[in-house]
Lab assay of single mutants.
Amino acid sequence: TEDEKKIQELLKRANGDVSKAEKLAQSQGNEELARRLREYANK
């Protein structure tokens, strides 16, 4: 999905570090994506 692409892109930029990727999403003002990242990471 589009969200998964965004999540994978963020994870790439954060070198696979979920908490960093989450902070990136939040810094972009994207709380929804940050929440999805957390769920994605907890799979």
Results as ranks from 00 to 15, higher is better:
residue 19 S to P: 05
residue 12 K to W: 07
residue 15 N to Q: 09
residue 7 I to Y: 05
residue 22 E to V: 15
residue 15 N to E: 09
residue 29 G to K: 03
residue 2 E to P: 10
residue 34 A to R: 04
residue 5 K to P: 06
residue 39 E to S: 03
residue 8 Q to A: 11
residue 12 K to P: 03
residue 6 K to I: 13
residue 28 Q to G: 06
residue 9 E to L: 04
residue 5 K to M: 12
residue 3 D to R: 07
residue 22 E to Y: 06
residue 9 E to Q: 05
residue 43 K to D: 13
residue 14 A to M: 10
residue 32 E to Y: 07
residue 14 A to S: 08
residue 29 G to W: 04
residue 34 A to W: 02
residue 33 L to V: 04
residue 8 Q to F: 11
residue 36 R to D: 04
residue 21 A to I: 03
residue 6 K to W: 13
residue 30 N to Q: 10
residue 30 N to W: 15
residue 33 L to D: 03
residue 38 R to K: 08
residue 31 E to C: 13
residue 42 N to L: 08
residue 23 K to Y: 09
residue 20 K to M: 13
residue 11 L to G: 02
residue 16 G to R: 02
residue 4 E to D: 12
residue 29 G to F: 06
residue 16 G to D: 04
residue 22 E to A: 14
residue 42 N to C: 13
residue 10 L to H: 04
residue 1 T to L: 13
residue 4 E to G: 06
residue 5 K to Q: 11
residue 10 L to D: 02
residue 32 E to L: 06
residue 4 E to N: 09
residue 16 G to Q: 05
residue 6 K to F: 12
residue 14 A to K: 00
residue 14 A to W: 05
residue 31 E to M: 12
residue 7 I to V: 06
residue 27 S to W: 06
residue 30 N to G: 15
residue 15 N to F: 09
residue 20 K to A: 13
residue 42 N to I: 09
residue 33 L to P: 00
residue 17 D to H: 04
residue 15 N to V: 04
residue 11 L to N: 02
residue 38 R to H: 14
residue 31 E to T: 09
residue 24 L to N: 03
residue 15 N to D: 11
residue 39 E to I: 02
residue 39 E to V: 02
residue 10 L to S: 03
residue 6 K to T: 12
residue 6 K to V: 13
residue 41 A to M: 14
residue 8 Q to G: 05
residue 32 E to T: 06
residue 27 S to A: 13
residue 30 N to F: 13
residue 32 E to M: 06
residue 3 D to W: 15
residue 24 L to C: 06
residue 10 L to W: 05
residue 39 E to A: 04
residue 41 A to P: 06
residue 23 K to L: 10
residue 6 K to D: 14
residue 13 R to D: 11
residue 38 R to S: 05
residue 28 Q to V: 09
residue 1 T to D: 14
residue 1 T to I: 12
residue 42 N to T: 12
residue 33 L to S: 01
residue 27 S to Q: 14
residue 41 A to R: 08
residue 11 L to M: 06
residue 25 A to R: 00
residue 5 K to A: 11
residue 20 K to D: 05
residue 40 Y to L: 15
residue 9 E to G: 04
residue 27 S to V: 08
residue 6 K to A: 14
residue 20 K to T: 09
residue 41 A to F: 13
residue 40 Y to M: 15
residue 13 R to W: 15
residue 34 A to N: 01
residue 7 I to W: 05
residue 6 K to N: 08
residue 7 I to C: 09
residue 35 R to D: 05
